[in-house]
Design a protein around this nucleic acid. Sequence first.
DNA 1: TAGTTGAGATTGTCCGGACAATTAACCAGG
DNA 2: CCTGGTTAATTGTCCGGACAATCTCAACTA
Lengths: 255, 255
Amino acid sequence: MAVSSPRTRYQALAESLLEDIRRGRLPVGARVPGELELAGRFGVSRHTVREALRRLESLGLIGRRPGRGTLVLNGRPQASYVQAVTQPEDLLQYPTGSRLRVRETAELTAGRVLARRLGCRAGERWLRLGCLRDFADDQPPVCWTDLYLRPTHRDVVPAIGCRPGLVHELIEARHALRTERVEVDVRAGQLPATYCEALQAEAGSPSMNVVRRYLDAAGSLIFASHSEHPGDRFTYSLTLERGWQSGSGLVWSGK
Amino acid sequence: MAVSSPRTRYQALAESLLEDIRRGRLPVGARVPGELELAGRFGVSRHTVREALRRLESLGLIGRRPGRGTLVLNGRPQASYVQAVTQPEDLLQYPTGSRLRVRETAELTAGRVLARRLGCRAGERWLRLGCLRDFADDQPPVCWTDLYLRPTHRDVVPAIGCRPGLVHELIEARHALRTERVEVDVRAGQLPATYCEALQAEAGSPSMNVVRRYLDAAGSLIFASHSEHPGDRFTYSLTLERGWQSGSGLVWSGK
DNA sequence: TAGTTGAGATTGTCCGGACAATTAACCAGG
DNA sequence: CCTGGTTAATTGTCCGGACAATCTCAACTA
């Protein structure tokens, strides 16, 4: 995966600390050096150090306490085992209240079929997270979604099953990874036998097959997902920004 | 609800802005005064203003962009999806080079079927623009699209058939009309006889039926479209606008 | 008419400094 | 042993300032 060089000082510092956490030089529970010490060591102001720590904190990598210092958390602060995800769940918004539950995790090599589906080369390695999305226990599931992540993000995977904010983190990662374009294939077909049990539907019944590919500015595939929606239709919605259009600013002249 | 008195200046400022948002003095989509103006108005430094805005941003209440300013979001999902408005012709991006040609125009009253499809009340009046999208004369058309506009926009209709950039203008119009949300229904079905000739396909052959509803902040229907894509699949792509999330500047350095 | 340029506005990135609030560790006294 | 106070370390809260990057809009030019 291409690594873009940091453009700002706090980014450089954040990446340095991130590297220390990834490599184990700063294990979970360890103390991060104080702000003044980091400032001195990196030759930046304390303000810049705090900006870097703020970013890491927002990603759940560290925690800070006045008087105590900064602690490495690396994404797993809570011991609670909650798989439910409430708020922003996926790039395509699903009805409020639906939950995305991780059922399976696996590492695999893309064969010809998967490579064609995802638009990648055969032989590439992927992490697959098999997730079931549903509203409530007494309602049939909405869909099955396989998320395909790069093996380089394996460190994210263990945190996924055991804390809320799962997909939120994926979204953060997506942003960090510079997704710029999403391609979506929609296909009507029949439900593969693989998903029958989880979706409480018969094999061969109608199903909508949705494949999403997340690309960066260069057109490279970052990650992907494959969903099976039982039935012969599905609905999604997009939210737009308002009031920030550049360009002609065409105004309706009718009355 | 008990309101604890703010202890810090940025809290006071954040609560003041929060109150404005809650009371509707700063509605969704409105611009928040600039940092310098807020600093002057509240008698604090710009640094303090930024801390307050940072908190509000992390709560999803506002969004900020360099050069543009600060926008009230108020919990609305951070508009991740802005469909490309540069070269694309429609909200759903079609392959470059495809053309949308108006074939029919009509004014009609929504019956029960159409009302159900568009999500409006039966009896509403609409302008329907029947358009054919295609690449070239020697290739089969991509799809048929019926655009449904309000009769108040009748003055636009005559201009549509006689100049390129049609749908681009519609997009501008959509923004001007304050579309905030797009609902998309995708359904697999069979091609209605109505579209057979134009699409050079047999009635009853597989077709993807896509209905899009453009809603404003209040959830009212602004305009709609209905497309028939021959075949059992279709593809579209979205372009992602980045930079609203706080913390998005961090670059993952793992490899 | 269409494209370019430039001024102005706005947020982002940095620096330096100061004091407050919180915590942990140490120490003296009961 | 326990209690309380002191002290040092650490993060939180603010100020002032400077420049960079980005975007809008109007004016200009071909």
